[in-house]
């Protein structure tokens, strides 16, 4: 099945753990980590990476611009 796959890269040290990306993601990919960065924030990460479509909603709402979004056409599955 041809489908779009995506992935995000969070700048962990600059993430403030606000959680706005978590609620903006339509496919519930993102969660806040139990671990903290050096500032003590529970940073965002892909908990369910296979559900990411690369829609960039998380990036759009991130107040600190710390999410890079990548997207590929996954093509027909072999």
């Amino acid at each position: 099945m041809a489908k779009v796959r995506g992935a995000i890269k969070v700048d962990v040290e600059k993430c403030k753990g606000c959680g706005l990306c978590v609620v903006a993601c339509p496919t519930s990919v993102i969660a806040l980590s139990r671990d903290v960065n050096s500032k003590g924030y529970n940073y965002a990460y892909m908990e369910v990476p296979e559900a990411c479509t690369g829609c960039a909603n998380c990036g759009l709402v991130c107040p600190d611009s710390v999410i890079d979004v990548y997207r590929v056409k996954a093509g027909v599955e072999a």
Binding site: A56, S65, D68, R71, V72, A74, E77
Partner: peptide, 21 residues
């Protein structure tokens, strides 16, 4: 199955921080 490491590549970047910031 496409791996995350195959997706996170420069040529697949669709959203990033503005260069003006």
């Amino acid at each position: 199955m496409v791996e995350v490491k195959d997706i996170i590549k420069e040529e697949n970047l669709v959203y990033t921080k503005s260069k003006i910031l």
